[in-house]
């Protein structure tokens, strides 16, 4: 009879073993959307994003001089964008000492070293009055061999580094999928303020055991004198660079303005008559 609890416990062991080990150092492939992710997107390039008019208006006002302000110099990428930004990633686990269960996963990305914690212990998400962070508050569960992560409490951030905003009301679902020495991270962002459909992106990584994260400590410094309280932006209708991207690449202006329609193949057919002209 004493064997019964032991045997019962054994039944659950294969489940735990079936969970994939994500830990290690991962190098970013950067083979999707490379121009956007290296040097950064061009001003006015909203192509292929399911944004609404509010997002478009805010991005049209955006001015890169923002990064000269002391208050904005040391912002890392928020969790939903960080996997699109430059940098390798380290993943490690916290383990419960007795049961050896993973209680949390941690990620750290090279650029600005933002760390995230993904809780695996079924804890609830915090109060609506709790602070928001760049990493948000994340909980994880295994769906077959995929780690599904749900994130709330994100700070207001960006969909692209050209001023396209993502609100703090957004929530993110991620899937971490390991295939041998490759890792795919799928991010699905739902933003009731700036998106009309979920924004789904994938980023790929290769196991890179030799990667050693470089410590980055950002301290803002006054490099250009500004009047106190000055906020750089363009008044509506005055941004002179909005269509440079379209002109340079020969794209129709409407296409670079983004919107859900521009995500789908049918949109190419819509553009075809204009292209022929």
């Amino acid at each position: 009879m004493k064997l019964m609890p032991f045997l019962a416990a054994l039944l659950f062991v294969p489940l735990a073993i079936a969970q994939v080990d994500l830990s290690g150092e991962w190098g970013q492939k950067m083979h999707e959307d490379a121009p956007e992710r290296g040097g950064g997107p061009e001003i006015g390039d909203y192509t292929g994003l399911p944004i609404n008019d509010r997002a478009r208006m805010q991005a049209d006002s955006w001015d890169a001089d923002k990064w000269t302000l002391l208050e904005h110099q040391c912002e890392p990428h928020p969790a939903d964008y960080a996997v699109r930004g430059p940098g390798s990633m380290r993943i490690w686990a916290d383990m419960e000492p007795l049961t050896k269960e993973v209680t949390a996963w941690h990620t750290m990305i090279m650029w600005m070293n933002p760390e995230r914690t993904i809780y695996m212990d079924d804890r609830p998400h915090p109060s609506q009055f709790a602070p928001h962070t760049w990493g948000g508050f994340s909980t994880g569960e295994w769906v077959d061999d995929m780690l599904k992560v749900t994130t709330t409490h994100l700070k207001e951030g960006w969909l692209r580094r050209n001023g396209l905003p993502r609100s703090e009301k957004a929530e993110m679902t991620e899937y971490f999928i390991r295939h041998g020495d490759a890792l795919t991270v799928v991010t699905i962002v739902k933003d009731p303020v700036f998106l009309t459909e979920p924004l789904i992106r994938t980023s790929n990584w290769i196991l890179n055991p030799g990667y050693a994260p470089t410590p980055q400590y950002c301290v803002p410094s006054r490099e250009i004198d500004h009047p106190i309280g000055w906020v750089p932006h363009h008044l509506p209708g005055t941004n002179p660079w909005l269509y440079d991207y379209a002109v340079k690449n020969g794209f129709p202006r409407d296409a670079v303005r983004g919107g859900a329609e521009t995500m789908y193949p049918e949109y190419q057919q819509k553009l075809e008559p204009e292209r022929r002209r």
């Binding site: 006002s61 208050e71 709790a130 309280g229 906020v231």
Partner: peptide, 22 residues
């Protein structure tokens, strides 16, 4: 509303400044 830090104050300030300028 919720507990904030400096970033939250800065972007609230940004918003109000931009609206004022417009």
């Amino acid at each position: 509303g919720r507990i904030c830090d400096r970033y939250d104050v800065a972007i609230y300030r940004d918003m109000l400044t931009i609206i004022r300028d417009r």
